[in-house]
């Protein structure tokens, strides 16, 4: 069915189909890799934000306040400005600031503090009694983090991953406009600057499907982890 429709739309412009498939793939791996990387750094950061908080297992008031301030500062920079600000860093790491690989750097950096706050929220939902029970058994901080905090918050953390990926789809389109590749670049150069309406609309539809898919996947995984426990 989809094949027949797309064959009709792209009958005389088969390059368009190729371009859209390529751009979709680029967006997919940009988002996937930056989501993974942002959790690699954001998850520990979120754990540190929670556990160094007042009365928590690694309480450290001054450190916690400084870290919180940095996280908030980064989060308050609009992404489009952030993109430009980190260009020197991107160049240093990747060698260039244009292209799909290069945009993973600003995407990841912008998502880390966002992820940290999401993880923080998930971990705060855990009842303090569970932490006390673990403390009463003689658990150390690492055991509490790895055996209580993260497993107990897992369903909520999974939903957070979906939210992050969806946000990164949007960000990746913005990065695309300044040469980041993926669906954003495609829509901007062909759809906007060359008046290829078809490309514009197909891009929008692909993005909608993409976001739906990620959300469905997140919901599904979350309900699997929860229903296992009931």
């Amino acid at each position: 069915m989809l094949g027949i429709v797309s064959a009709g739309i792209f009958a005389n412009n088969s390059w368009m189909l190729d371009a859209i498939i390529l751009a979709t793939w680029e967006t997919f791996y940009m988002v996937a890799i930056s989501t993974a990387l942002s959790y690699l750094f954001g998850l520990p950061l979120g754990v540190i934000l929670v556990t160094t908080g007042d009365g928590h297992i690694l309480e450290s008031k001054g450190f916690n306040r400084i870290l919180g301030t940095i996280v908030n500062a980064v989060r308050s920079i609009p992404f489009i400005i952030f993109l430009i600000l980190v260009i020197p860093l991107t160049r240093l790491i990747v060698g260039t600031y244009i292209g799909t690989i290069a945009s993973i750097v600003p995407l990841t950096l912008a998502a880390i503090p966002f992820v940290a706050r999401l993880v923080e929220t998930s971990l705060r939902e855990i009842e303090w009694g569970l932490i006390e029970a673990a403390l009463s058994m003689g658990a150390n901080a690492w055991q509490i983090i790895s055996k209580v905090l993260i497993p107990e918050a897992l369903p909520s953390i999974i939903l957070g991953i979906a939210i992050t990926a969806i946000n990164l789809v949007g960000y990746s389109a913005m990065a695309g406009i300044v040469g980041g590749g993926g669906l954003g670049t495609l829509a901007y150069y062909y759809g906007y600057q060359r008046y290829e309406d078809v490309i514009m609309w197909v891009t929008v539809i692909v993005l909608i499907l993409f976001v739906q898919l990620v959300q469905m996947l997140g919901d599904k995984l979350q309900s699997i982890t929860i229903s296992k426990r009931r």
Partner: peptide, 30 residues
């Protein structure tokens, strides 16, 4: 020292992510 002082609670405080068996396993892992 805490490993030799057991404690039980009004709200039970069992881990919802673990089965009964694994909940009892928890202090032994620690």
């Amino acid at each position: 020292a805490r490993q030799k002082i057991g404690m039980i609670f009004q709200q039970f405080n069992l881990l919802s992510s673990r089965t009964v068996f694994d909940n009892v396993m928890f202090p032994l892992e620690i």
